[in-house]
């Protein structure tokens, strides 16, 4: 028996949905997304696997919501781009239909597979299948998490008193926030203060 089986996951029945994104041709151009989708169907606890043209777009998100409701899914795996790009999008999407946003797993088919294996469709497809398998394996053990709320100090620090720091400090202060502006020289102004006239309008810098 595998260790991951030993480390049991609790009593709830797992219902995983997998959404494979073509991202136009960004993913579908270098690997067979339909083959990946079919493979996903065979993975443990996967109740439904769907192919989308653009999962992040409204129709794609609606598809996720529809299937979560229809199949009573409690884990969602989206195989598309980098989580740095769209993890917040999909977390919000499943939260919309009442799932805890942490019951979501993202498989980075675009940045970590289709874009870096442009010239070997078979190998890229095999890797994509494996990546979805890894994603589903992880998803099966995901647990709901609660995001804590922390208070916000409504003040800002601006480091550097050149033209950029001055402008940022003024805008924030005009909005009504207390600003601390730190400058290492005795006076603010930065390099801008050393410049005579400025282009394209030929006016003074100070």
């Amino acid at each position: 028996m595998k260790l991951s089986e030993v480390l049991s996951r609790g009593a709830e029945e797992l219902r995983v949905g997998v959404f494979v994104c073509e991202c136009g041709l960004n993913i579908a151009g270098s690997l067979d997304c339909e083959e990946v989708r079919k493979y996903a169907e065979t993975l443990p606890d996967v109740k439904v696997a769907v192919l989308n043209k653009y999962t992040c777009a409204d129709p794609g998100q609606n598809e996720i919501k529809k299937h979560v409701k229809e199949h009573n899914l409690n884990r969602v795996v989206v195989a598309s781009c980098s989580p740095r790009m769209h993890e917040p999008t999909f977390r919000a999407c499943i939260a919309d239909v009442g799932l805890n946003p942490y019951l979501f797993e993202m498989v980075n088919l675009r940045e970590h597979c289709s874009w870096v294996h442009l010239h070997d469709r078979k190998a890229a497809t095999d890797k994509a299948k494996d990546m979805v398998k890894i994603g589903v394996a992880r998803a099966r053990f995901l647990e709901p998490q609660i995001e804590k709320e922390v208070p916000v100090t409504n003040k800002a620090l601006v480091i550097g008193g050149g033209v950029a720091g001055i402008q940022a400090a003024l805008d924030l202060a005009d909005t009504g926030y207390q600003v601390y502006l730190v400058e290492k020289e005795p006076s603010i102004g930065g390099v801008m203060a050393q410049i005579d006239k400025t282009y394209p309008t030929m006016d003074c810098s100070i």
Binding site: L170, Y177, Q178, V179, Y180, L181, E183, K184, E185
Partner: peptide
């Protein structure tokens, strides 16, 4: 600006 506290140097 009353809302800006400057720390120069």
């Amino acid at each position: 600006h009353p809302k800006v506290k400057l720390y120069t140097y």
